[in-house]
Amino acid sequence: MEAIKTEGLTKHFYEPLRRQTVIAVDNLDLVVEKGEIFGFLGPNGAGKTTTIKMLLGLIFPTSGRAWVLGNPIGDRKTRQKVSYMPENPYFYDYMTGEEVLYFYGGLFGLKGPSLKKKVDELLELVDLSEHRKKQLNGYSRGMLQRIGIAQTLLNDPELLILDEPTSGLDPIAHREIRELLIRLKEQGKTIFLCSHQLSDVEMVCDRVGIMNKGKLVTVGRLEDLLKVGEMEIAVEGLDPSQVEQVEKIASRIYKKDGDFLVYAEGEEKAQEVIDFVRNNGGRIISMVPLRRSLEELFVEIVKEEG
């Protein structure tokens, strides 16, 4: 059973002022497996938040179907096992930090000492224990973000849908959240992570999907997506004539103080290079498969799409 599955999920918005229909999500097929951290990327207006809102039953698909934890979207019982943190979360700012958690806990049907214990734990976790009696309108952006994360953990969820969870955080809190995400994953939870912080995604996500203009452009394992197929092989101890021969096999070569960086396209070519070097008395210093950064991939895709 998948944590999230959509089939041809589509959402049109009618904009009365411009008298036109905007296709926010276009025929989205997406599968998020249980237990993985799925990074959901895309520029602003790509349809990420619209997709999330459909998954949570806040808005309704124009066409297509979707399931969350095996149940069709809009099912109340499913939401018991899901938690959501919206982008730039706004909470009832007349409540104090602990009141908000008590309130949301109540919505999950928690009460009494177990709720109190949970609230205490979570406030400790997000380091807000000393501000628990303070009204939210006195909280900084980072504190609000941390309360937002705390409230997603109230119900011990199977699936967390997080929209920009690390924006507005200082570097230390940022790292703590990142570690928290990994810890949650280790507990077997599924995390659907929307983020602009590509470094976060790159560091914690198993798979990513990239949306642009309502369409899912790319989806796959992060390693697969970032792999470009080139090997960077550092070589030493070859004389120049031999280097010329290597150049024929490799796609390009950089010379540096008698060392060479040989780039080989594909595994076969790489093996050929390695064999050649070994047979001719050279030494392989290092061998690194080349990867793009996620940022490069992202920019490339968005540019391609225009």
Partner: peptide
């Protein structure tokens, strides 16, 4: 408008 409704309705609330 303030989107507080999102956090409430994404909980098991009809």
């Amino acid at each position: 408008e303030r989107r507080t409704v999102h956090t409430v309705l994404s909980k098991p609330v009809e």
